[in-house]
Design a protein around this nucleic acid. Structure first.
Lengths: 333, 333
DNA sequence: CTGCTTGTTGCACTCGCTTGCAAAAGTAGG
DNA sequence: CCTACTTTTGCAAGCGAGTGCAACAAGCAG
């Protein structure tokens, strides 16, 4: 059962009584074809169910239209919504997303980039992990664009999109201070990625500026489950925190649930919580979480716009602001 | 800035002092190459950063290795986890996922399939929406495989994976009955997809069998927000339901939150709730929702296994069971 | 030494498409 | 009607790879 059944330009040409080139030109915007032949070609194509073979076209044009999205744990709410925004906007720019899941081994970000090269992707967008420098160099040398989202490490020639994490963390500190909190804690994971650490740094710095102690606890990965553990650790201290900044919303949800159901603490009257990402669940009544919104649409727009540029501009680093979304997990507001 | 910088087999051949065919054969499993040449080729390839061009290979072999995932609202927890499972397992079978987002217009499932054809995808997996028969016929005629997940409509030649929705709904009815509930309600969306309607049917049928009335309410789409509206409608009736089956977990979460915070009802003592999908949030302490698990890994495994078969078997329909996950939103258990 | 098998290698063709080039056809102007 | 110019069109040469076929080398038995 061979699969050579796709209809080719040749067949369309024969049926329309024109040359292969005519068919090709009909489907190439801006090529010179008379109205008459175009009509006959489109008609024949329609009848036969012809579709230009993008593989072959990509081969000739040296431009596949493929953009690789490299990501792990893609069912995480924030990741999923970013992927949704990216795929949507890529399609509007008539590109297509190839999704590479790097859940498995450790070097798999490198593996993913090799795949991207093999499929001659026009670009790769990295949402998780950080590839080896040698492989990113190979990508760039091969003329493949590279976008790093919230990765924060420097890679010449790549577009780096980051949030102003430090500043967001600082603003959250001030908000908590205004809410009357005095015992600050920071709940982090052990992932230690640059953006997570920047939030921690910003929060600590704000604490120092105001002469207030900040308890930092780190555990596991940035999941709901870790949030519960962090609650356990933080809320059993002799001086119980009355304000906790969680490095992301999942952690915050887990922590809040533990605080309420395990420690019988009321939010926000006894404990104020701030999260990060503004995932959908943050707006659910049970959590009603004050948090910082990841501007996923902005991020996607910046990435796609940069990919659309013929020649990448000099300044290839974007720092976006995360807007504070006030909800009920902090007093006042 | 032309992008013709990818290194080709020719260059590797030159550097290794062999013919281009030798290079080709080195990267083709099972081809006849001597140890010596293979060594020289791999060495040269390594040095130059050569990667086989999958576009060209796909062109020759008439098999791209690409599988299209066609989906809308992919940031929905259930969809996201299915995508994660699929991409992971596809990669293990050395295929690669192309993600097509059909959020926009209405005919876009058809558009998506056209894209799939253009990229000569080996197969398309449809998670949302239902394409026109003419276009699915074109796919099949072109030799492209087609997998429909939870679509339930018949398409000869395609693999159809569905859950036993009716039976799950019936089991949930019985569970609620055993929990002592007597006023049953069914919360559905207006999406009216076959699988959602099958759940409704199953639940109603169970009601009839036991001679009990079932109140059905439908509203909006299957989201948290709709859940709140459905709660509003159901819980203000003269005889308030004490058992509600929600057609999916998002709806259930929204409904539970409304029930508790707006109507001050305790779950499960005053109201029992059952959901469907077993999204991660269902296990969160705030919800602790009894629900049916979508066997995403099984689904993905079935799909990938079928794609791996040289010739699709006769029986191309799978009906999987959704396991009931007992949690705290139903008394007893 | 001959004849034959086994294993490697290169040539050349093919996949489906784009595009430069030159010929053909159409359009005006004189 | 001829000339100069502007489309339109077909030819043919790629793009980067896989593969049947024949040539060739090596190994071995007779």
């Amino acid at each position: 059962m061979s699969r050579k059944i796709f209809v080719s330009a040749k067949e369309v040409a024969d049926r329309a009584g024109v040359s292969r080139s005519a068919v090709s030109r009909t489907f190439t915007p801006g090529a010179s074809v008379s109205e008459e032949t175009r009509r006959r070609v489109t008609e024949a194509a329609e009848a036969l169910g012809y579709h230009v073979n993008h593989l072959a076209r990509g081969l000739m044009r040296n431009e596949s239209g493929i953009v690789c999205l490299i990501v792990s744990e893609l069912d995480t709410p924030y990741r999923a919504s970013l992927i949704r925004a990216l795929t949507g906007q890529l399609q509007s720019a008539s590109k297509i997303a190839m999704l590479i899941n790097t859940d498995r081994s450790d070097d798999s970000v490198d593996q993913a980039l090799r795949q991207a090269i093999s499929y001659r992707a026009d670009a790769s967008i990295i949402l998780s992990g950080m590839p080896d420098r040698s492989i990113t160099d190979l990508c760039l040398k091969s003329g493949q664009r590279l976008v790093l989202i919230n990765r924060d490490e420097d890679r010449d020639g790549a577009l780096m999109i980051n949030l102003n994490d430090r500043d967001a963390a600082r603003r959250s500190f001030i908000a908590l201070l205004r809410a009357g909190c005095r015992n600050f804690a920071f709940a982090n994971s052990e992932a230690m990625t640059p953006s997570l650490m920047a939030r921690e740094e910003g929060f600590r710095a704000a604490g120092r500026e105001h002469g207030l102690e900040v308890t930092v606890e780190r555990f596991g990965s940035t999941t709901y489950q870790s949030g519960a553990v962090l609650a356990q650790r933080l809320l059993t201290r002799e001086t119980r925190p009355d304000a906790i900044f969680c490095v992301n919303d999942l952690l915050a949800c887990g922590l809040m649930d533990a605080a309420r159901f395990q420690f019988n603490l009321a939010v926000p009257s006894e404990l104020c919580v701030v999260g990060f990402d503004d995932i959908e669940q943050a707006s659910w009544t049970s959590y009603n979480l004050t948090t910082f919104a990841q501007p996923v649409d902005r991020i996607a727009a910046e990435a796609v716009a940069w990919l659309d540029q013929a020649t990448p501009a000099q300044t290839n680093s974007r720092r976006l602001e995360a807007d504070l979304v006030w909800r009920g997990s902090v007093r006042g507001g």
